[in-house]
């Protein structure tokens, strides 16, 4: 790969400075602070702290609630990613085959991505409300069958669906772009070879989409680990009885409701390392298998 080298210049520095300042203030500084807090015992209302080494991490990792949170986070990440990507792929295949007015579809289908997570959560709170939502009809037939405020499994399901709904748009755009970059003659050649549309999707389009699928896998999993707070907070508040207490939400709850800054900081560090490791593993080992040329 070619690289360009530039000489040091004050103009360049001046142009870079605002962006660097923002990254420093909103990322490096808080991150450094979190690392520091993770190794100290911080007092809730300020006024000094004590260096405790790995004590915070030991506490977090020996906490069964923490492991429950990890478990539900993994379920949430895999669930939303799978659901969002299957939905996005299906929609993209439809739009790709029927291109009339696709620009309108495209805009309509990207909108959900622009909706803030808390708004999504709030909307789904109405949708899944056991007394007034769509599924309340289930309760008129079998009273009490649907109630995400009581059933842990149903609560997890609602968060997964809401999270997936929010992520569909993003994946859809990428899938559609990738599908449209597959030369038409390739599909036609397969049609001449006797493959029906579903067979063509399976034998041709899906394999050719693997780079896109991989990319979206990384983005979606990472997103669902770090970006689920808004949905959980408005939809279930982590309940019932911590059933939807995702890692990100637990950090917030422990830190700002339980005033355990040090424990929350330790969890943040663990989450950060987890996401970094995940991305590294995926890029290092999975990406290799998806290139053709």
């Amino acid at each position: 790969m070619r690289r360009a080298y530039f000489k040091f210049s004050w103009v360049a520095m001046a142009l870079l400075a605002p962006q660097l300042l923002i990254i420093f203030v909103f990322f490096y500084w808080p991150s450094a602070q979190a690392v520091y807090w993770a190794f100290t015992l911080e007092q809730p209302w300020g006024g000094g702290n004590t260096w405790v080494g790995f004590e915070n991490f030991r506490n977090v990792l020996s906490d069964p609630y923490y492991w429950a949170s990890v478990r539900v986070s993994v379920i949430y990440a895999l669930g939303t990613t799978a659901l969002a990507m299957v939905m996005a792929m299906t929609l993209a295949v439809f739009v790709d085959r029927q291109l009339a007015g696709y620009k309108a579809y495209r805009v309509a289908l990207i909108w959900p991505y622009a909706i803030a997570a808390p708004a999504v959560g709030l909307a789904f709170r109405f949708v899944f409300n056991p007394n007034a939502g769509i599924l309340s009809y289930v309760n008129t037939v079998a009273p009490g069958l649907w109630d995400p405020t009581q059933s842990a499994a149903q609560a997890v399901l609602t968060v997964v669906i809401a999270g997936a709904w929010k992520q569909v748009a993003y994946s859809f755009i990428f899938f559609l772009a990738a599908l449209q970059s597959i030369p038409r003659s390739l599909t036609e050649a397969a049609a001449m070879d006797g493959a029906r549309p579903l067979r063509r999707i399976w034998d041709l389009q899906l394999p050719l989409l693997t780079p896109t699928i991989f990319f979206l896998l990384v983005i979606n999993i990472t997103d669902s680990f770090t970006d689920s707070f808004g949905i959980v907070d408005t939809l279930t508040g982590g309940g019932p009885f911590r059933a939807t207490d995702l890692m990100v939400y637990k950090i917030y709850a422990d830190g700002f409701r339980g005033f355990d800054y040090s424990g929350a900081a330790a969890q943040s560090i663990i989450l950060m390392l987890l996401v970094m490791a995940l991305t590294f593993v995926q890029f290092r080992y999975v990406e290799r298998r998806v290139h053709y040329t």
């Binding site: 036609e188 050649a189 397969a190 001449m192 034998d203 050719l208």
Partner: peptide, 12 residues
């Protein structure tokens, strides 16, 4: 059976 201008071979 058809032979296409850009060959249309399945790259994978």
């Amino acid at each position: 059976a058809m032979v296409f201008q850009n060959y249309a071979l399945y790259p994978h």
